[in-house]
């Protein structure tokens, strides 16, 4: 019990809490919502996207953390872009070579991981200032934080839009499916409601930040 209480004050605990809830990239920082809206109408797409983004966050954070003492301040943004773009292209090649079905399902959105603000955000805010071991954990926590929010949204949208989860029929055929849930506006509704609930649960209000 004492050990558990002490754990609350370790850096490891704080890093994972930041990524998963207190500073969750989507519901608290509201970063990376373009992909959260675009590919969350099916759970399998959300899982694949989550895995790809998690890999890119961890990989880019690790590389940047390793070379953080050599990066000239003036070109640090360009450095992040080169590292991130390189990793995304590697993911693209790997998907095309080993998971062609997944690659065709995700289509253009794999390339768009480059523009995912979470990846850039973690590089600038964390990886450039912290040692490799914490950086790896931070990347993992943020990746999982991103993935589970995507999957939650996707579960709601897939059930309402298609009556299925992971392509298994959940609702009876007679249920009138909502076309709007399949397109981006449906994603906005679900994401908005989710942000409200999550912020209420974590007691995170903007007023507190400014007060």
């Amino acid at each position: 019990m004492k050990k558990l209480i002490r754990m609350r004050y370790t850096k490891w605990f704080n890093i994972s809490r930041d990524g998963l809830s207190r500073n969750n990239p989507i519901v608290i920082s509201v970063l990376g919502i373009c992909s959260a809206l675009a590919i969350t109408n099916r759970v399998d797409n959300a899982l694949a996207m989550g895995a790809a983004v998690t890999f890119v966050i961890i990989g880019s954070s690790l590389i940047i953390s390793m070379i953080r003492n050599f990066i000239p301040t003036r070109v640090r943004m360009i450095t992040y872009m080169v590292v991130i773009a390189g990793l995304v292209i590697i993911v693209q090649f790997m998907l095309q070579a080993f998971f062609p079905d997944l690659y065709s399902a995700l289509g253009a959105y794999v390339g768009l991981i480059i523009t995912n603000c979470i990846v850039m955000g973690r590089s600038e805010a964390f990886a450039a200032k912290n040692p490799v071991k914490f950086t790896f954990f931070d990347g993992l926590a943020n990746g999982i934080g991103y993935t589970y929010v995507l999957v939650l949204i996707a579960i709601v949208r897939e059930i309402l839009a298609f009556g299925t989860v992971l392509n298994y029929q959940i609702l009876p055929d007679t249920f009138p499916t909502w076309q709007v849930m399949a397109i981006a506006p449906g994603g906005f509704f679900v994401l908005g409601l989710l942000i409200w609930v999550m912020r209420d649960l974590t007691k995170n209000y903007d007023e507190e930040a400014t007060a």
Partner: peptide, 10 residues
């Protein structure tokens, strides 16, 4: 259809 980039779900 082997390749398409239409709106997912529609």
């Amino acid at each position: 259809v082997l390749e398409q980039e239409e709106t997912p779900g529609l």
